[in-house]
């Protein structure tokens, strides 16, 4: 067999394999993508919450995208405490001003950043939240202070529609 012929055959086989592999990949993708959030799930983006009945020092919990959102109306002392913490004492340094648009209202995803449990209100060493699963302590700004959780509790996208209504998402 001449060298030229060998080359052509190699090219033919390589091309066949390559084209076949592309097709296989294109076929596998829909099977993977079908597990991503579907169009109806993506559409449920926002929820509106009436906060007129929440008194200072109380927290309400609402469901958003299948997860609890804590909405806490903080007292003046709590706000002062949250603002007084020095950033260098924090595991995940964030200013309270960056976490609460309106210092009176803390809107936060009530999910422990360790492994996803829901922390308990007004528990723990820092007068904030305490996760019973693996003992993470959060302060009154929802920042991690002690325990295995790596970051502060997440702040969702939200806005004040009017004085009594918060739109989450």
């Amino acid at each position: 067999m001449s060298e030229k012929k060998t080359k052509r055959r190699d090219f033919l086989f390589t091309a066949t394999y390559a084209v076949g592999a592309v097709g296989l990949g294109a076929t596998v993708w829909p099977m993977i993508d079908q597990m991503n959030p579907d169009a109806s799930v993506k559409a449920l983006a926002s929820t509106e919450v009436d906060i007129s009945s929440v008194n200072p020092g109380n927290t309400i919990t609402v469901l958003w995208r299948g997860k609890p959102v804590f909405i806490r109306r903080r007292t003046l002392e709590e706000i002062a405490e949250a603002k007084s913490v020095k950033l260098e004492n924090l595991k995940h340094p964030e200013k309270d001003e960056d976490r609460a648009k309106n210092p009176e209202w803390l809107v936060m995803l009530g999910v422990c950043t360790h492994l996803g449990c829901v922390p308990l209100d007004q528990k723990g060493d820092y007068n904030g939240w305490f996760c019973p699963c693996h003992g993470s302590h959060y302060d009154i700004s929802g920042r991690i202070r002690k325990g295995p959780a790596p970051t502060n509790m997440e702040i969702p996208k939200y806005e004040f529609v009017d004085a009594n209504t918060i739109k989450i998402g």
Binding site: L12, A15, T16, V19, G20, G23, A26
Partner: peptide, 9 residues
């Protein structure tokens, strides 16, 4: 695509 691959095969 299938026609191209069929020809190659």
């Amino acid at each position: 695509y299938l026609i191209i691959l069929t020809v190659l095969v």
